[in-house]
C-alpha cells in the first residue's frame, strides 16, 4: 500500500509542476526595441557586408530562455545585385524567410549588472538547424536589457552552397556581430 500512496503523492506533484509551468507563462519577458546585426566576410575580390535592423528577440529573465528571429530579406547590402544573389542563390529567402535562434542563457544568474554569458541552443539558417553555444556580454537593469555578441557561422553547417563557377570567391565562414536592446514586454 506504500506504493499507492507514493503514486498519489506523485500525481499531486505532477499537478503542481503543471500549474507551475502555467505560472512560468507569466514570468517577466523582455522584447527588443532596437537591434543591429552585421555580417562580414573576407573575400579576396571584395569584402561582403550586410546590415539588418529588423531582427526581433525576446528574453525571458525568469526561465532564461532567449529567442531571436532575423528576417533574411532585411539584410541590406551596399550592392543591390549582391543582395539579390544573397537572397536568390545562397539563403533562398523565399523558401526560408527567417533565421532563428532558440536557446537558454546557461550561465547567467539573473542578477542586475553586467555579465559575460553564454546562450546554448539551436541556430536555424537556410532551413538547417545546428546546435550552437554563443558567448556575449549582457547588461541588465530592471527596465533595460542589452546583449551584444560576435560569433562565426560556417556556411556548410547550414548547407549554403558556394558554386565553383562564381567569379568572386566567398569565404566559408562569416562573422556575425549582433547588438540587442530590450525593454520589458507586456502581453496584450
Amino acid at each position: 500500500m506504500m506504493e499507492l500512496r507514493i503514486i498519489k503523492i506523485m500525481k499531486k506533484l505532477l499537478l503542481i509542476i503543471f500549474l507551475l509551468n502555467c505560472l512560468f507563462g507569466f514570468s517577466q519577458k523582455f522584447k527588443t526595441n532596437n537591434s543591429h546585426i552585421r555580417f562580414f566576410s573576407d573575400a579576396p575580390m571584395e569584402d561582403i557586408e550586410a546590415i539588418n535592423e529588423s531582427a526581433t528577440s525576446i528574453v525571458d529573465v525568469t526561465s532564461k530562455a532567449i529567442v531571436i528571429v532575423v528576417p533574411i530579406k532585411s539584410f541590406d547590402f551596399k550592392k543591390e545585385l549582391m543582395q539579390e544573389h544573397f537572397n536568390e542563390n545562397y539563403l533562398e529567402s523565399d523558401d526560408f524567410p527567417n533565421a532563428t535562434f532558440k536557446g537558454k542563457l546557461i550561465d547567467w544568474n539573473g542578477e542586475e549588472g553586467t555579465a559575460q554569458v553564454s546562450a546554448k541552443g539551436t541556430m536555424e539558417i537556410h532551413g538547417v538547424s545546428k546546435e550552437m553555444t554563443i558567448t556575449g556580454d549582457l547588461d541588465y537593469s530592471s527596465n533595460v536589457l542589452k546583449v551584444s555578441t560576435v560569433f562565426n557561422i560556417k556556411l556548410e553547417d547550414h548547407k549554403i552552397k558556394i558554386p565553383k563557377a562564381v567569379f568572386y570567391k566567398i569565404a566559408e565562414e562569416v562573422e556575425v556581430t549582433a547588438n540587442f536592446e530590450y525593454a520589458p514586454y507586456e502581453k496584450n
Binding site: 509551468n21 512560468f24 507563462g25 519577458k29 522584447k31 535592423e53 529588423s54 526581433t56 528577440s57 525576446i58 525571458d60 526561465s63 530562455a65 529567442v67 528571429v69 528576417p71 530579406k73 532585411s74 532563428t100 532558440k102 514586454y185
Partner: peptide, 18 residues
C-alpha cells in the same frame, strides 16, 4: 519546448519594414 515555441510565436508578427 513549449516556452520556446511561445516566444517564437510572440515574434512571428511580420517585419513592418518589409
Amino acid at each position: 519546448v513549449g516556452q520556446d515555441q511561445e516566444l517564437l510565436e510572440l515574434l512571428s508578427s511580420s517585419d513592418p519594414n518589409d
